[in-house]
Design a protein around this nucleic acid. Structure first.
Ligand SMILES: [Mn+2]
Ligand SMILES: [Mn+2]
Ligand SMILES: [Zn+2]
Ligand SMILES: [Zn+2]
Lengths: 154, 154
DNA sequence: CGCATTAGTGATACCTGGTATCATTTTATC
DNA sequence: GATAAAATGATACCAGGTATCACTAATGCG
């Protein structure tokens, strides 16, 4: 669910992106993408499949993989439990993951890139990519003091 | 394999740490820890098991988990293929992973922590932890232009 | 040392996230 | 509408890892 637009609009955006790359807009794809666009925050493959159980499991994984490969979804592995998927901004970004409610927020800190650039040039490395994930308790969840089911990577 | 000391010394360090926490120094544990201490860079559960195949598979995973839990090993998930394990320094650190040869180097950049601290206080978040992994081509591997079998998380 | 207690082991079966296969269906194009 | 290529989904399979549980062995005490 992208803030500020409807789920249907979000689904259309994904479908357009698929069409632009020459992928066919099949029935299962449409329904699956609609289910994905309706998810709040991060979701699991299982979770989105349960919304459209008539779509085959293989198709669910295939489509998620395609969308991740296209940069439209992020895949966030967790230390315990299934990896989570989430709608991605198109640009490079990092993740703020609330370990209690699972909400994920993208953030950008150009300083991080600057640090890595300095690190690389001082050590004769070629940086190919990086991943920064920050595990937090969001403002909302700091009240509740609840349990968190799926701890992220420490 | 810890630079500057022998494998036997490295194994002893791990065994001491286990004993200090009241864990028994069993035969399988000794042989497994010896195999772990002899690994160069990152290794897979499968890889270390193949060195001591007489130790049960369950014991391999149990022991790796214990050592990770104690902070003596790091577990580095890869996008494709099995997660890698590596000897950890005790302090918080980040990872420089060469995607070609698999070599991993720990590094520390206090600036990263400073950035996250600022981020947290400005957004009313409680930071519980974070993970920064940088995927590089090391100086040595920039020559070879070889294939890399297991791409890390993009 | 000898024994009891208890942690640890490992064979087995099982679980989960995901993929290969492949006959069948559906889409896009002409 | 015919055609060719892409997609689907049932099925079987794979890999990393865990639960079970009868058995083994490290430890600690007398
Ligand atoms: Mn993201
Ligand atoms: Mn490390
Ligand atoms: Zn939260
Ligand atoms: Zn290298």
């Amino acid at each position: 669910m992208i803030p500020g637009i409807t789920n249907a609009q979000g689904a259309s955006l994904l479908l357009e992106a698929l069409a632009q790359r020459g992928m066919r807009l099949t029935g299962p794809r449409r329904r699956l993408v609609e289910a994905i666009a309706s998810q709040k925050g991060l979701f699991t493959a299982e979770g989105v499949h349960s919304v459209v159980p008539e779509v085959g499991r293989a198709t669910v994984f295939r489509t998620l993989k395609t969308l991740v490969g296209m940069g439209l979804l992020c895949r966030v592995p967790m230390e315990h439990g299934a990896p989570r998927y989430g709608l991605a901004s198109r640009l490079h970004h990092h993740h703020l993951v609330c370990v209690a409610c699972g909400e994920v927020r993208d953030f950008v800190r150009p300083e991080v890139e600057a640090i890595l650039h300095r690190l690389a040039s001082s050590a004769d490395l070629r940086v190919l990519g990086h991943r920064l994930e920050v595990y937090v308790l969001c403002a909302h969840c700091q009240q509740k003091e609840g349990a968190c089911s799926a701890l992220p990577l420490a």
